[in-house]
Computed example of a mutant assay.
Amino acid sequence: MERSASLDIEALKMTQEQYILASQPSALQRPGCPAPYPVGIYGWRKRCLYFFILLLLVTMIVNLALTIWILKVMNFTVDGMGNLRVTKEGVRLEGVSEFLLPLYVKEIKSRRDSPLILQSDRNVTVNARNDLGQLTGQLTVGSDTVEAQCQRFEVRSSDGDRVLFSADENEVSIGTEKLRVTGNEGVVFAHSVETPHIRAEPFQDLKLESPTRTLTLEAPKGVEVNAGVGEFRASCRKELTLESSEGEIFLNAKSIRMPNLPHGSVDPLLSPGTSYPKHTVYEVCVCPSGKLYLSPADSASTCQTTNSVCLWS
């Protein structure tokens, strides 16, 4: 009885050992079974993998070094980079700045102690557009000219209340008290000029000249030419006309001189038996055409329509 019990215990132990051995993998090769294929990377594949890992590590180190160098060169800080600083008021640039692409800002201003300079190798153009993107105003500063394209161009005083100069399609207005032109040739107007007052500088002459055409002064209520201290002179190449359609022409002076009037002579065939003594006193005669001439003075008038001056006028 005891022997059978010990055999059963022995059989139970053998059964447990066989179960444990069956459940665990065994490195021992069973007789009659083929050798298993080794799992893993061996040989040249393993060397290539290590080489790529090493190359990736070197690339990461180089990229990190370049990034640190760029941060150092560009002077990256918490507030910005280089001459660029980000403040509560906006973006601040110090020194010379260059923009290669369009710049869209609301306001550009310089420091209080420094001017604002916009510089370009060619043209500097400032554009203004509406909500639809259409061009409404343009200011171009070139090497030869300064052009402004807008509906109305204005130049105001320092306080901004008074318009000093304005220009649009209809008119050009100058709001200053005095317009001064310092050029040697003066001012050239291609068409008419409308002004209530033309005055020269103190101790300077005022000259109105038309070199190749006529000079016309017109006013609905009269034209006044006044030289308070100096003299007034009107000269022309061909004819000087003083015309008054309804009123009169007054020559009011202490002496009126006409030094180059021609001396008239009567044709003896037209006035036979008439002789005039030689003397230096003459009278001023008027031909029917309006031409003036001098005739020897006598007790009676010597003006005749048959005078040579009137016949050839």
Rank of each mutant, 00 (worst) to 15 (best):
R162S: 06
T136L: 14
T195V: 06
S295P: 12
E169R: 03
P115E: 09
K207C: 06
L139I: 03
V187Y: 03
D79C: 05
S275R: 14
V105G: 05
T176Y: 05
Y282M: 11
G137H: 09
R152E: 08
T125W: 05
K109I: 01
V86L: 08
E17W: 04
G247L: 01
E239R: 13
T125V: 10
V229N: 09
E243S: 12
S244W: 05
S23Y: 08
L217W: 04
S235G: 08
I108V: 11
K207R: 13
P25T: 02
V126E: 03
T67G: 12
V105K: 00
P34E: 07
I61C: 12
G228F: 04
V266Y: 06
V141N: 08
L294A: 12
A65D: 11
F52P: 02
S295Q: 11
G222K: 12
L54K: 02
T77E: 12
T176I: 07
L57F: 11
T125R: 13
N307V: 01
Q138K: 14
C310D: 09
M14K: 11
T125I: 12
P102W: 01
K207L: 08
Y50Q: 04
L71N: 07
E248M: 14
I174G: 01
I249D: 15
P296S: 13
S313Q: 11
L57N: 08
E147S: 14
Q138N: 07
N83C: 00
V281Q: 11
F165A: 02
C48Y: 00
P220L: 10
V187S: 05
E185C: 02
E185D: 10
D298Y: 07
Y282C: 10
S192R: 09
R92K: 04
S271F: 11
G228C: 05
L71W: 07
C303T: 02
T195C: 13
Q304K: 15
T302W: 01
F189S: 04
V309I: 15
G82D: 03
P36F: 01
Q16D: 05
Q24Y: 03
E89N: 00
S120Q: 10
L251G: 09
K291L: 15
F165M: 02
G82A: 05
V229S: 06
A167E: 08
P259G: 02
A300V: 12
S289T: 00
L12W: 02
Q18N: 02
I9P: 01
T195P: 13
T145F: 10
I249P: 15
Q18W: 01
A35W: 07
Q304D: 15
E185K: 10
G95V: 00
E283K: 09
A11C: 02
R233P: 06
V62Q: 07
Y104I: 14
Q149E: 06
P31H: 06
L103T: 03
Y50N: 06
M81T: 06
F232V: 00
L179I: 13
S301F: 11
E224R: 15
T305S: 14
A167M: 12
L93Q: 00
A148W: 03
G32N: 11
K178C: 12
E209H: 06
K207T: 11
V223E: 15
G80S: 03
L64K: 04
L242N: 10
E283C: 04
K109Y: 07
I256Y: 14
L66D: 03
M60R: 08
L93C: 00
Q119A: 07
P262H: 03
A300R: 15
G230D: 13
Q304F: 13
V187D: 05
P296A: 11
A200Q: 03
E94Q: 01
A234E: 12
R85N: 10
